[in-house]
Design a binder for these strands. Structure first.
Length: 870
RNA sequence: GGGCGCUUAGCUCAGUUGGUUCAGAGCACUUGGUUUACACCCAAGGGGUCGGGGGUUCGAAUCCCUCAGCGCCCACCA
């Protein structure tokens, strides 16, 4: 027949990609059903797919597809992020390669290049998402710089300003000298590094003495405008009203007393550089000190640095040390472990810099968002991130949102050219002019007198609106989409953007709509390599997802990733798991091949073992569906997958199909075939969220095309049916073992005598089929000269010429001893008054039951031993 | 410095309120197998003082204390 022996993922997936490529296929519009909504964490528009995306989006697709099978109105909104700083860095580099410097061209020209770049490279990642099977509503694809989303950002800015949540202030901020922009605190990462602590000698004016001052940054001495000591530091009380000479610079600076200085650090003296440290800035403000900025935008030294002007900060540091050393002005150099601040994007050392920026007042905004998570209104999976979130939210600091970049949403603030302390916030320059006229009561102003802020907004200032703005809920707060789809159901992301994104979305959700943006947050782990190392370009340990898909199939990789991904834990990715996924695809494929090849007979009645298998598998299926649903409810997706995996492989293939499959050349009754098909269809449905390609393929090729994939309903399983079947299964294993140890061939028939009532005709039929044995119900104990098998507390006797060996007898003896020991423990426990008084009845009942079982087991073992030694 | 989490089989991890289902799963490993769907397979098997120590309890992987190791987040000192 036409079905290949080995599943050809590449071919099948190619066909399905084409079918799923239809734009409208996963389109969602509001209707009477309950919505199930996810907004994608928008990847960088020029990004390429990595393993993190693969994991993240596979999980989303699983949730989405399951919801679709459950007949929710499913809406998965895809899109991309303009990623202000990351994209701008790429464009700057591209221009540099062409010999163009950013500062040489106009803003407009630069943006032309950036759009060109975006149009060329953008959206690639969305196509890659399709390769892994993502079933997004592609008609809703959004980009954070689209007109509607940009409008939303600007509207938001204006509203926040009008309501008093935005302010402009001169503060010490994080400066990225490579990208030449400020960064938010979240965009700075700290790394421990061994550096030196230099003890510099500052001459005391009017004396030949020097004051020793410890610093890690000798290159900033040009900006020193004081030295501070703690007022309680007895050593320096005598220095009141004295002045010091800054080495090299030879400038006189005062000594100030400030209790923020730590007495125990270094010499207890702090050189104060208000332009280059937050702490120094605060001291400077308090004591009214002069502020001298010594750096250019690229962190080279400026004119204040005298001979060192124009040189890079690290170079200057070296040279200053040399010079100070030559002049005998260094008293000591110590090794010192120090956290250096690095830019998340460019990895260069961040410079604290005093500058005028826009900030969002966060404290008040954060409150409802904090409460929502603490009260469980918004649920985190796993829960451990609640504390991390709380810790951050309780200590939240104002958010610096201006960036000195071109690529992004330009800040909608318009200043008077002649006096930039006068400004208005407005949608465009016309509006601005109107506002200016009324605000400053000056009707002579024209558009030419105004200038818009040069800066753009932090990327996350648009991302935090994502769940609202993709449904146009900022501009049209009462539109049908936003009212239907918001709050969204779940969001899936890595914990690394908990503060960048998740926290801020919750904040903005409550602020702009008074409602949470989503019910559940699922945090994936970090994808690491099989040795636990982070995936990185340098190590070359980051596999290309597309290449993996080519090798193992998208289904195989999806499964492989999830096999190793318990919620929230980092996962150690190993291609071996994809191999397992691929094998699983093949297993499913072959089950299909088998079932598809069954030949029907209209005359034939159902065999007893077929009825037994169907009866049992129905129960087992209910049991497993409940377990899978339960796992999904708790967002334990790997667990849901593992249950599915075992259900398919062990229960359906190894057990169920082995029973129902006809002997060579035989046919199956129509009734059985129909029931098998029904069951297989349910199996495919459960598999579908995890493995959409193969399940769709088989379902479409299936004879019974009228059965659609839908998430199977379940009820409580009948434990008696399952229990009896398990009893039979255990007996089968033991019979097989018996045959094996006694070198009885697989096809050789043996006779088994039994007395219990568990085995009805159907189960007997199962046993006979799988073990080639003849089951005979006997009235009296047939134990003599027979080998016994104990299953639960029931004995089975096998007729066999073979006598058990000495070793076997020894084994029985050991078994007996063990059980007698166990019996003693149980009896002791049950005669313990404290136990009987305190333990719940159920526990005691159970212990008694155990004792019963043990007793019957012991007597049967004794019987066996007797018969053997006769 | 402040906060959080982890340590269970060779590996990766499950183990809800202490007691039925508690010592589990997958992979790996060992042994046997050309059983007409699948060797990308089948059948069977071995393997753990639940990080160490102490405590509470009739009973602890589970609760408390303590020690050791690992990891994450936040803040940041010149």
């Amino acid at each position: 027949m036409g079905i290949e022996k080995v599943y050809n993922a590449r071919q099948v997936e190619a066909e399905w990609l084409e079918r799923w490529g239809e734009k409208d296929l996963f389109k969602s519009v509001p209707d009477h059903r309950t919505p199930y909504t996810i907004v994608i964490p928008p990847p960088n528009v020029t990004g390429i797919l990595h393993m993190g995306h693969m994991l993240n989006n596979t999980i989303q697709d699983i949730l989405i597809r399951r919801a679709r099978l459950r007949d929710f109105n499913v809406c998965w909104v895809p899109g991309t992020d303009h990623a202000s700083i990351a994209t701008e860095a790429k464009v700057v580099k591209m221009l540099r390669d062409q010999g163009i410097t950013k500062s040489d061209i106009s803003r407009e020209k630069f943006l032309d290049h950036a759009w060109e770049w975006t149009n060329k490279h953008g959206g690639l990642i969305l196509n890659q998402l399709k390769r892994i099977g993502c079933s997004c509503d592609w008609t809703r694809t959004k980009f954070t710089l689209d007109e509607d989303l940009s409008d939303s950002v600007i509207d938001t800015f204006i509203r926040l300003f009008d309501e008093g949540y935005l302010y402009r202030d001169k503060k010490i901020v994080n400066w990225d000298p490579e990208a030449k922009t400020t960064l938010s605190n979240e965009e700075v990462i700290y790394k421990e590094e061994e550096t030196e602590l230099y003890y510099l000698k500052y001459k005391i004016v009017g004396s030949n003495d020097y004051l020793s001052i410890a610093t890690t940054r000798p290159e900033t001495i040009f900006g020193d405008t004081a030295v501070a000591v703690n007022p309680n530091d007895k050593r320096y009380k005598k220095l009141k009203n004295k002045k010091l000479i800054v080495p090299i610079v030879n400038r006189e600076i005062p000594i100030v007393f400030d209790d923020s200085v730590e007495i125990d650090f270094g010499t207890g003296c702090l050189k104060v550089t208000p332009a280059h440290s937050e702490k120094d800035f605060l001291i400077g403000k308090k004591h009214n000190l002069e502020i001298i900025d010594v750096f250019n935008d690229d962190a080279s030294l400026n004119e204040h640095a005298m001979d060192f002007a124009g040189k890079d900060r690290f170079k200057v540091k070296k040279e200053i040390i040399e010079k100070l050393n030559d002049e005998g002005l260094i008293s000591k150099i110590e090794n010192y472990n120090h956290n250096i601040a690095l830019s998340e994007r460019t990895s260069c050392v961040v410079e604290p810099k005093l500058s005028l920026q826009w900030f969002v007042k966060m404290k008040e905004l954060a409150k409802p968002a904090l409460d929502a998570v603490l009260s469980g209104e918004v649920k985190f999976h796993p829960k451990k991130y609640i504390n991390v979130y709380r810790n951050w939210m309780e200590n939240i600091r104002d958010w610096n949102i201006s960036r000195q970049l071109y690529w992004g949403h330009r800040i909608p603030v318009f200043y008077l050219k002649t006096d930039n302390s006068k400004f208005v916030v407005a949608k465009n320059i016309k509006e601005a002019l109107k506002k200016f006229k009324s605000k400053f009561d000056n009707h002579d102003i024209t558009i030419k007198d105004l200038i818009q802020d040069d800066d753009v907004l932090d990327t996350w200032f648009s991302s935090w609106l994502w769940p609202i703005s993709v449904f146009d809920g900022v501009r049209e707060p009462e539109n049908e989409d936003i009212n239907y789809y918001y709050p969204t159901s779940d969001i899936v992301t890595g914990p690394d953007i908990l503060f960048f994104w998740i926290a801020r979305m919750i904040i903005s959700g409550y602020y702009f709509r008074g409602k949470k943006p989503f019910n559940n947050v699922y945090f994936t782990g970090l994808v690491r390599d099989e040795k636990g190392r982070k995936m990185s370009k340098q190590l070359g340990n980051s596999p290309d997802p597309i290449e993996l898909i080519e090798n193992y199939g998208a289904d195989g990789v999806r499964i492989g990733l999830l096999f190793s991904a318990p919620a929230g834990n980092d996962l150690l990715f190993d291609t071996k798991l994809c191999e397992q996924g691929k094998n699983f695809s093949n297993k499913i494929w072959n089950a299909f091949r088998l079932i598809n090849g069954f030949e029907t007979s209209n005359e034939k009645d159902q065999e007893l073992h077929e009825i037994a298998a169907i009866k049992w598998f129905n129960e087992e299926l209910n049991l497993k569906i409940n377990a899978i649903n339960n796992a999904f409810d708790k967002f334990k997706i790997s667990e849901a997958l593992m249950i599915t995996y075992k259900l398919v492989w062990d229960d359906f293939c190894s057990t169920f199909l082995e029973i129902v499959k006809p002997k060579f050349g035989e046919k199956i009754s129509q009734k059985t075939i129909t029931e098998i098909n029904l069951l297989f269809n349910k199996i495919l449905s459960i598999l579908h969220p995890f493995m959409p390609f193969i399940s769709s393929e088989i379902q479409s090729k299936f004879i019974h095309k009228d059965q659609n994939l839908e998430w199977p309903k379940s009820r409580n399983a009948d434990n008696k049916i399952i229990g009896n079947f398990e009893h039979v299964n255990e007996l089968i294993t033991k019979v097989r073992n018996f045959k094996k140890t006694n070198s009885i061939g697989f096809k050789d028939s043996i006779k088994i005598y039994y007395q219990n009532k568990i085995l009805d005709g159907q189960l007997k039929s199962v046993l006979e089929k799988l073990t080639n044995c003849e089951l005979i119900q006997s009235k009296k104990n047939e134990s003599s000269k027979m080998n016994s098998i104990l299953v639960g507390k029931h004995n089975y006797f096998i007729e066999s010429d073979k006598k058990l060996s000495e070793a076997d007898i020894l084994k029985v003896k050991e078994d007996l001893d063990y059980n007698i020991g166990f019996k003693n423990i149980l009896e002791k426990k049950l005669s313990n008054k404290k136990f009987v008084d305190n333990a719940p009845n159920q526990v005691i009942e159970n212990e008694k039951k155990k004792l019963d079982d043990i007793n019957s087991k012991i007597s049967s073992l004794e019987n066996k031993l007797n018969s053997l030694s006769n």
